[in-house]
Design a protein around this nucleic acid. Structure first.
Ligand SMILES: [Mn+2]
Ligand SMILES: [Mn+2]
Ligand SMILES: [Zn+2]
Ligand SMILES: [Zn+2]
Lengths: 152, 152
DNA sequence: TCTTTATAGATAATAATTGTCAACAATCGA
DNA sequence: TCGATTGTTGACAATTATTATCTATAAAGA
């Protein structure tokens, strides 16, 4: 069960690839979709829908929040962004590493960091053996205080 | 960073202990609270607020949903139930093991199983070293199909 | 360019949860 | 045990995040 895969992140190349993919799936390439996709591909900080909405409106003032939600769902369904959901506030998204991976979340400033843990696939394998579940995904989050917030 | 602790689960004893604790914190011991607490202490299946509501109404028909939510929040705050939240539907709760621990979630029947992974504390320690975060909690969920649902 | 039809934007609807407040009842002290 | 105090309940309004609906529009292919 290989849940993760390594992807060298090149926003421009991925934008092109995803556009081709969407076209193949008979989705239309609208300026709104491209703008939202660009924002995801260039955000290191796991933005929320509201944050994407604010950004896209800067370039494209007529965009509606519903369109952002619809595009987010579309990109989720085609596997090009990862949804991170947890208690307290809305979901966050990762457009750079769209496959399941662990996160470190600062409960003070809400910053979300990627964290590499090599053991995840082994753990998933073990769990499959011992539990009989067929594991297809995971969500692993560690909560705490980031270095910056500790200095206060 | 010892996030987990082992607790031998004895519903009756824990009920008494929690009641003493709540009284010490100047919370009143109402029949509704005791009823809700009993349900949590005797549920192996990580019930939702709605499920607890349905159960408590069987014995106590006048109970309101708001009271269930308030009691859930109270028990969360005093650390006697664990909240499990993920995309798709409401939160689920564990009143038997109220400390962070990994779960296996069936995306077909929504069953949630506890899963023991010894490595969690080591991973948390490693992450603290490499990231500088001070980790205080975690949420680890594996999604897949349970054995029963695979047979269909 | 023309036609088809998926999509955008406006807005209503929904789901989950939280806030408000008056009547009530758990607790404690006399 | 009684009575005063004040935290809690239950009804319901409000909020937050998200999804559904619908019509004008515009992307894509002929
Ligand atoms: Mn990430
Ligand atoms: Mn559990
Ligand atoms: Zn922080
Ligand atoms: Zn199942």
């Amino acid at each position: 069960m290989q849940l993760t895969r390594s992807v060298k992140h090149d926003p421009k190349q991925r934008l092109d690839e995803i556009i081709v993919k969407l076209r193949e799936l008979n989705f239309r390439i609208t300026p709104q979709r491209v703008a939202i996709l660009r924002i995801f591909l260039n955000s290191q900080d796991h933005p929320s829908v509201e944050q994407v909405y604010a950004q896209v409106k800067a370039d494209f003032p007529s965009t509606s929040l519903a369109t952002v939600y619809k595009t987010v769902n579309l990109l989720k369904e085609v596997g090009e962004i990862l949804e991170i959901s947890f208690a307290g506030g809305g979901n966050r998204y990762d457009g750079i590493k769209p496959y399941p991976h662990p996160h470190l979340i600062c409960t003070t400033c809400n910053k979300i960091m990627d964290s590499e843990i090599g053991l995840v696939d082994q753990i998933a394998n073990e769990l499959e053996q011992t539990s009989g579940y067929r594991i297809v995904s995971h969500q692993i989050e560690f909560f705490g205080t980031c270095p910056a917030c500790q200095k206060k």
